[in-house]
Design a protein around this nucleic acid. Structure first.
Lengths: 235, 235
DNA sequence: CTATAATATTTGGTATACCATATAAAATAT
DNA sequence: ATATTTTATATGGTATACCAAATATTATAG
């Protein structure tokens, strides 16, 4: 490859793309902490002392604090004066409230997706569904759960509504742990698969009513599952 | 007044209530800036330089910055590296997307409110509606608009769903300016009043279907109003 | 006078220093 | 030995100092 010719070709642009490079340190730290919370490495009730954590991550307290504020706004942690931030531990009431909102959001997403999704969007959703069907019997809980979640993400993304996608993701993250803990039961898997099949069918037919209703009902079943788990946990 | 007796009476409690006192400075600053944005004292496109603004508010850059991060998370301002934060100026597309989400949220709120609202909640909503009817003909745009908005807030609050209330408020704030600019037309007032009347009627009957549908349709009309305003503005 | 390069200045981003308060520990009086 | 007061320490909250990059300004070469 000729170096000189390359230089000549590029002489006017000087690469000119910072593009996806620069991001605030605080956001990167927030991503790390958020991932740790979702992966269960940071469990509800765990504290996140500022000095200790910032030192562990090799940053100063300023961006660490910035990250904590982001996570607080997302509802993943709780901060109170003179106390170390603590990973949020949503009550059953809070979870059901959030799931109700999520059901409305996903219902809307399904409705919009019927008109806004491209054919390849729907095919991609179908592909996720097929993978879920294939792994319903034997896959480990984590894998199955992640496929399940990606299905919902894909439908919401197909709505092409940024505000909706962002708001949905907000609850998605906060509900992650509780949904994971309840998704383990293989018994509920078949129901989920059936619900998803109905949603896919509706999307192919671009039947707004059907998809919207299916999404909504599907999510409301999750409320029952979570409630059941909490009741069982008390025992 | 006898000092000693006072001391004796208070000896056990020492006032003991910090209660509603302490809040982070950053949040207070965020409240101030948010209010300025909502009141139009800070318009879309206006910049908020950190040093200048923090000096004006009499705080250091740290809490000011904390406030900016909050407002950025709320979507009220936009921050980019090496540039002063700027008050967000949502496009028509963004506004319609947010209004669609808001319509779903308010529909859900109306539905839930039918079962969760107390009788006095409904009476309070009715009272707001009556005030709106009374001032529909002559009140200045600001007053009418504020009553209109408080009606929606009251219905959502009646759902008693914290996640819903918070999420709704998020969009409520971001949509505030655009809705205010479109709410001026007296022509649209009558339609709004009629819609609200239908909602109140449904709430009294605790008819979930009706209230939910009315809320949703009412909000979707706002999309048309906003779209019309943008089209007219181009002219 | 114009174009270009060097420099000064302003910006947000980050690190550090300091402060107030809440909590834990220790000392002392009962 | 216990209860109470005092003191030490650790925590988050805030202010300041410093840095890098982007931009505006000025000087200089053409």
């Amino acid at each position: 490859m000729n170096r000189d010719s390359d230089v000549k070709e590029n002489e006017k642009q000087t690469i000119k793309m910072p593009a996806l490079a620069r991001q605030r340190l605080g956001n990167q730290v927030a991503d790390v902490l958020r991932a740790q919370i979702l992966l269960g490495q940071l469990k509800p009730g765990d504290v996140i002392p500022e000095r200790e954590t910032s030192a562990a991550l090799g940053v100063s307290r300023t961006p660490l604090r910035e990250a904590l504020l982001v996570l607080e706004a997302e509802g993943l942690i709780e901060m109170s004066p003179s106390k170390s931030p603590v990973v949020a531990n949503p009550s059953l009431l809070e979870l059901t409230e959030m799931l109700l909102v999520q059901s409305a959001l996903e219902a809307l997403a399904g409705e919009i997706a019927c008109s806004k999704a491209t054919q390849s969007d729907i095919e991609a959703i179908e592909e996720i569904h097929n993978r879920m069907v294939a792994t319903a019997q034997d896959a480990d809980p984590i894998t199955f759960f992640q496929i399940d979640m990606s299905f919902h993400e894909a439908v919401v993304a197909a709505s092409k509504n940024e505000a909706l996608i962002k708001t949905h993701n907000r609850f998605h993250v906060r509900l992650w742990r509780a949904r994971f803990l309840t998704a383990g039961k293989v018994a509920t898997r078949e129901v989920s698969v059936a619900d998803h099949a109905s949603i896919v069918k509706g999307l192919r037919a671009r039947d707004e009513q059907k998809v919207s209703g299916s999404m909504r009902d599907h999510l409301r079943k999750v409320i029952d599952n979570v409630t059941a788990m909490y009741a069982q946990q008390k025992t």
